Amino acid sequence: MDGQGTPKPPEADDASRLSDPRRLASLATTNLMDSPHEEVFDRAVRLATQLTGRPVGLLSLIDGQRQFFKAQIGLPDHAAEARETPLTHSFCQHVVTEDAPLIVKDAREDPLVRDNLAIDDLGVVAYLGVPVHGPDGETLGSFCVIDGSPHEWSAADLKTLEDLSAMIETDLKLRDTVAQRDLLIGEMNHRLKNIFTLIGGMIRQSAREASDPREMAEQITGRVQALNAAHSLVLPDGGTRGHEGGEVALDDLADTVLAPYPGAQKIVRGGKVMLGPKAAVAFALSLHELATNAAKYGAFSDSLGRVELDWDVAEDKLSLTWREELPHAMAVTANDAGFGSRLLQLNVEAQLRGTLHRTSPPKACMSLSRSRLRLSSTDAKIGLAPWSPLSLSCP
């Protein structure tokens, strides 16, 4: 503490690590912050205290301002009831910033934590904590045991916590796998419903363009085949066929996804950017949702409408813009609760580690929607594409 009796502010590097957008996005994806008690985590904490013989055990999750106790045993009543403390009372934050175990025999004599308010307010003297990682490898928090008296921690104590932490991480991976499975099943059901609407639109559009039944049949067949090709890019196993190394070029993916729609109504342009399998699936699903929405309510629902999709790379950042235009004003009803909207949000936040902002344009707006994302071109190649705030609104 300084001379005024207040804790020292965290080091700038430590604060930056705690507030790292990727780490916070990974933490948010787990939905564990501020969630109720769960037996699987409570059991792990009980085992930790029983096996090490210490009175206090915690599964502590850290965001940029506080630590939340997903599971705890042995804390003072006020802290156990609150289930959180500010970082001024957190030893666990150091486990996160270093992504390594923290071993403290006597906190009152340890330069790293001797000014921490948890010593006086929570009775923390001896501390042993190990990192807990999310399914994507980001450090979410600490699994720890605590004593109110000095204690010499053994190698067996450390191994016990590491094993229990690994069990927690396995549970988080299983939860993520189940969530992805449910999302894919929902996407398949959603797409089966959409395909009938889409094919109906293809038939109507082909009927207006074709001069005879044979030409109409050829047009419909070509569009259905293009739709099938787009579907092959977003198989449930995340595979991308026909591309070496599991990569797909963004322009090839965009052309494939938009192939079912009239060529005169779309413009696709941009340089060569390679996407890894994970990013390719997320991009394909997102473009599919935007295109399907345009077919139902936007530019593709009117023969005079137009969609422009373009991107460029500058300062190692990729900027992509989706723009829809109609020759007249058109009211648009946003459905943020629909599966398509939820799927787009999950793709952006969970798969591409970004944030999604949506706004409805004014009814008089001719440009119905504009979507924009930014990502590192290097990350795009390996399929870890961070997506900056994306908005659906008038430019």
Rank of each mutant, 00 (worst) to 15 (best):
Q4K: 12
K8P: 01
L18R: 12
P21Y: 09
S26C: 10
T49R: 14
L59K: 08
Q67Y: 08
I73Y: 09
L75G: 04
E84I: 01
S90T: 11
V96S: 10
V104F: 09
A107Q: 11
D115P: 06
A118I: 12
V124G: 07
V130Q: 07
V132E: 06
H133K: 15
D136C: 07
G137D: 09
D147W: 06
S149E: 15
W153N: 05
S154P: 08
S154H: 08
E162S: 15
D163E: 12
L164S: 05
A166M: 05
M167Y: 12
R175G: 11
N189D: 14
L198K: 05
Q205P: 00
S211I: 10
E215V: 11
Q219T: 10
A226F: 04
A226T: 02
L227R: 00
A230D: 02
L233D: 04
V234A: 10
P236M: 09
G239R: 14
E244N: 00
V248G: 00
L250S: 01
L253D: 02
A259P: 06
G263T: 11
Q265L: 04
K266N: 02
I267A: 03
G271H: 04
L275I: 05
L290V: 08
T292N: 04
A294E: 10
S301C: 03
R306D: 01
D336Q: 04
F339R: 02
L344E: 06
A350L: 02
Q351D: 11
Q351L: 10
L352I: 00
T355N: 12
L356D: 09
T359Y: 03
S360Y: 00
P361A: 07
S367A: 09
L373P: 01
S376K: 09
G383K: 02
A385Q: 07
P389S: 01
